[in-house]
Design a protein around this nucleic acid. Structure first.
Lengths: 215, 215
DNA sequence: GTCTATATGCGGATAGAC
DNA sequence: GTCTATCCGCATATAGAC
């Protein structure tokens, strides 16, 4: 067989949840799309919520795993001063973009799905998700603090927030109807890394006034 | 009376939609929270979707309006070269932050609500929303292109995407339980403007390689 | 493991009295 | 304008035959 009932359910659920939200999609929608019986969901997963968890784990785990691996490699290869800002950001931003371009439709869906979770899922599921990501975020924040000894810690964390938001927005944009061609996707990634690296390396706020620099 | 039935419905709907999503919240939830009768929603607004539109218009219009006004002022006061990047970004990012700090709980809800719309609303509502915002975005993009003659147009648009995402993420973060103290909010805004201004002013991608700058 | 049939409840919307 | 009562459809979940 091409794929098992369980996998077909996961595929359909991932696609439909991502495109249209968690609550808008019924088990009937999913089972119809997957070409399986309605009762199969409860047989294989137990409930709609348990199905959502299974979808999440399958989709998200590989990206975070890859980010950790890449940072490990960077740190083992770098010298006393640790990896450079650009390299760190490349390791952080690369995997989601790679997932996007390599996995075709499935890759970009990952980010829509994150958005759906963030706005709709119950706290328990959000926590499961957040805990995984926080581990990654902490590792990267520490690496960046080391690479930027002149920027204070709370400022590094704020900037990491900005980078995350910028990345999510770029992904959402690319997943619109029409989408992005492969070379546009590459440009987007490089632009983002550059934008983030320059922003991260900025001096702290007090150095320059934000006004009166016209002409 | 403290507020009319219509206003109480709008207040409750805004809060509940923002916190928990559009589809998760029923008219029964809203009318119970507002302390009004279930049938009042259909009497005053006609349908759940019409209620959502009313909530949106009330929440979003003032911010975009304010952004346009501020840019008008900047441009009338600036000379031949037009406003500086920092000033433009200040005008773009200021109003949402002001709404946030001034309106108390209501201000921050605005951004959660945007997120809900983006992931859950039907295309018609998204389009209404987007059309308003696109006008603002176009005005600001043109101003930035003028201020950055050495950065090409598609790159300016990409960076505007990043700024939007960073802003949204900052807002979402601040709206978490615990939230941000007023002075932390100010720091967040200044950090974001600085981060964005520096990122915007970066040279185009080809100038520096992104690798091999370690040690 | 997979199906049909059904239990049970919540959803939006409305009719019609007051 | 506001209320109660109700229509009707769709949701999740499960029972039980095959």
């Amino acid at each position: 067989m091409a794929s098992s009932t369980k996998e077909r359910i996961l595929d359909s659920a991932e696609r439909l949840f991502s495109d249209s939200g968690l609550r808008m999609i019924s088990l009937r929608d999913i089972t119809k799309d997957a070409g399986v019986n309605l009762a199969a969901v409860n047989y294989h997963f137990g409930s709609k919520e348990a199905l959502l968890k299974a979808v999440l784990e399958r989709a998200i785990y590989p990206v975070n795993e890859s980010r950790i691996t890449l940072l490990d490699e960077l740190e083992s290869q770098s010298g006393e001063k640790g990896p450079a800002v650009e390299d760190i950001l490349h390791a952080f931003l690369g995997p989601p973009f790679d997932a996007w371009s390599k996995a075709g439709d499935r890759g970009l869906r990952f980010f829509k799905l994150l958005g759906q979770i963030h706005t709709q899922a119950n706290p328990e599921i959000q926590t499961v998700l957040l805990n995984q990501f926080i581990q990654v975020l902490e590792r990267y924040t520490k690496a960046l603090e080391r690479a930027l000894p002149n920027v204070d810690s709370t400022e590094v964390r704020r900037r990491m927030l900005f980078v995350n938001g910028a990345m999510a927005q770029a992904m959402r944009f690319g997943s619109n109807p029409g989408g992005l061609a492969p070379e546009e996707l590459d440009q987007m990634r490089e632009s983002l890394i550059r934008f983030a690296a320059v922003g991260f390396s900025a001096e702290s706020i007090s150095d320059l006034s934000l006004k009166g620099r016209r002409s």
